[in-house]
Design a protein around this nucleic acid. Structure first.
Lengths: 148, 148
DNA sequence: CGATTACGGTTACAAATGATACGATATCGG
DNA sequence: CCGATATCGTATCATTTGTAACCGTAATCG
């Protein structure tokens, strides 16, 4: 019989490493830009897709809608994003980066890529690519047909 | 210039998938055994290594010491683990599974392996192995020389 | 030894996170 | 149209999670 060793138990290992990475990222963003991880994610999504709504961000990132709401309010207060009432749906806001937000993004994005390179650059040639592909497969197994 | 896409950004992807897996595991354990993830981890570690202390569990699993303390107290109250004052260090407890704890573990461990198989069994032949190896490499990059 | 410092574990407190309920609008069925 | 139901975002509340202070004990150093 196959015995259980926590060190080799994939769900544990995955959580462990994810916490390590998230912690490193979180402290870096907090220190450099005063952004929490949810806030940084909002900025990134809005930069990629101007005019999205909070609900769309939830669907895309898996974040809770209240987490997104709080991050949006915080970013709005800091003048980094603008929240325009949607014309087609008066319940929703269309989110966009302000000039300040764009300026911040211009700083944050390269830093993000650099952090990624610092952490994952040490992996072998195809290793990072395979790793990402495996993560996506796991998403599909768990999330059903979703996963982008 | 290499552009940033959140969907391909490894720190995000890793966190996303980890949350998915942890969520699935957490609900299963809660429903089947009334165990939180920290509690389940304690049971697993103690089963593997009878007589460990809480500090050792922290070092091994990366959990916060107060999380471990709470889980230990809860498991003690449920009669699943025994906490014997250590002979060599009167501050520490040596943790061991009671008969009830052993019985629970005999149920939990196979279920854990089954869950792991359900989630990761769909991966290709060497894929899970490579995935685990990559996780360990990331741990080493971030955690310095540690990582077991 | 005696004092200082470090460590194991708990407690008390603060921050973050998620579940629930709500107001407002939108959509659907009759 | 109008009522029932679903959705967007927010606010409230409970739970979880981490941080800082604490009590004992151990180890270190003069």
């Amino acid at each position: 019989m196959e015995t259980l060793r926590l060190d080799d138990f994939l769900p544990f290992r995955l959580s462990y490493t994810s916490n390590l990475v998230s912690g490193a990222i979180a402290t870096a963003y907090q220190r450099l830009f005063g952004l929490s991880i949810p806030e940084w994610r909002l900025v990134a999504v809005i930069a990629e897709c101007d005019g999205t709504t909070q609900a769309a961000i939830c669907a895309r990132t898996g974040m809770d809608k209240v987490t997104v709401s709080r991050a949006a309010i915080a970013l709005g207060k800091r003048g980094l994003i603008a929240r325009q009432p949607s014309a087609s749906d008066r319940r929703a806001f269309e989110l966009g980066l302000t000039d300040a937000g764009l300026a911040l993004y211009a700083e944050v994005a390269p830093k993000a890529l650099e952090l990624e390179r610092q952490i994952f650059g040490g992996l072998g040639a195809g290793e990072a690519t395979r790793f990402l592909a495996t993560l996506r497969r796991i998403d599909m197994i768990l999330g059903g047909p979703a996963a982008d």
